[in-house]
Every structure is written in C-alpha cells, then in structure tokens.
Amino acid sequence: MNQLFKLDEMLTPKIVTVLYWLGLIAIVISAISVLFGFGAYQYLGFFQRLIYAILILIFGGLMVRVYSELLIVIFKIYENLKKIADRQ
C-alpha cells in the first residue's frame, strides 16, 4: 500500500491487462448476443447474425489487443528510458 502513494511503481500496466481480459469477455458476450438475436439483430436471418458474430469476434478481439498493446508499449518505453537515465 505504501508503494501506491509513493508512485515508485507503475500501476497502469496491471490495469491495462485486466481491462484487456474484460474487453475480450465483452467481445464474446457481444458476439453471443448478436448470434442469438438480441436487440436490433433480432430481425436478421441466422446466417447474417452468424457472419456478424464472427466479424465481432475477429475484429473486436483484434482491436482490443492492438489498443492494449499500444498502451503497454508506452509504459515499456518509459521503463527503458528510466533504465537509461539511471545508468547515467
């Protein structure tokens, strides 16, 4: 708890990992809801819902992964810059 108030350790990379998994769970729930026709998708045929669900799984998962990796890269850059600064 003491490290939390000193700001010596980055907390955000851990939060990004949790948000990544929550994002993947949300993508799967969205795809399932589209597949079974909840909401506005209830008026589409099964084949259209199946295609939309697959697209949501593929592109949604890809977008969550890319966004999470971009955030993690920022913190990796910070860590490497901190190592360089500590050496000098």
Rank of each mutant, 00 (worst) to 15 (best):
W21K: 07
I56N: 00
A85G: 01
I72W: 08
E79V: 10
F75M: 03
I56M: 01
L35C: 06
D8G: 14
A31H: 02
L4M: 11
K82Y: 05
L55C: 12
V73C: 03
P13W: 02
I51S: 08
I54P: 00
Y78V: 05
Y67K: 06
L50N: 05
Y41Q: 00
L4D: 07
R49P: 08
Y52F: 09
I56Y: 01
G37K: 03
L55P: 00
A40V: 07
S33A: 11
I58M: 06
I84Q: 08
I25Q: 00
E69T: 05
L11H: 05
I32A: 15
I84P: 00
F46W: 08
F36C: 02
I51E: 15
I72T: 10
L19K: 11
R49G: 06
R49E: 08
G45A: 03
V34A: 01
G45H: 03
L70D: 11
S33P: 01
G23W: 07
N2R: 13
I15L: 12
G39L: 08
L71C: 11
G37Y: 03
T12Q: 04
Y43D: 10
Q42S: 15
E9F: 14
K6A: 13
Q88E: 08
G23E: 09
R65C: 03
F75T: 04
F5K: 02
D86S: 14
Q48V: 05
F46E: 09
T17R: 10
K83V: 12
G23I: 12
V34Y: 04
R65T: 14
V34N: 01
L81C: 13
K14D: 15
L7H: 12
Y43M: 05
Y78D: 11
I72F: 05
R49K: 09
V34G: 02
I25F: 09
M63T: 04
I54G: 12
E79H: 06
K83G: 00
R87C: 01
K82M: 07
Y52C: 01
R49M: 12
I74H: 07
M1R: 04
V34C: 01
E9G: 04
F38Y: 11
I15V: 14
L62S: 07
I72L: 13
I74P: 01
Q88A: 02
V16K: 00
N80E: 11
L50Q: 03
L44T: 03
S30E: 05
Y43H: 07
F46I: 12
S68V: 06
L19W: 04
F5R: 00
F46C: 00
R87G: 02
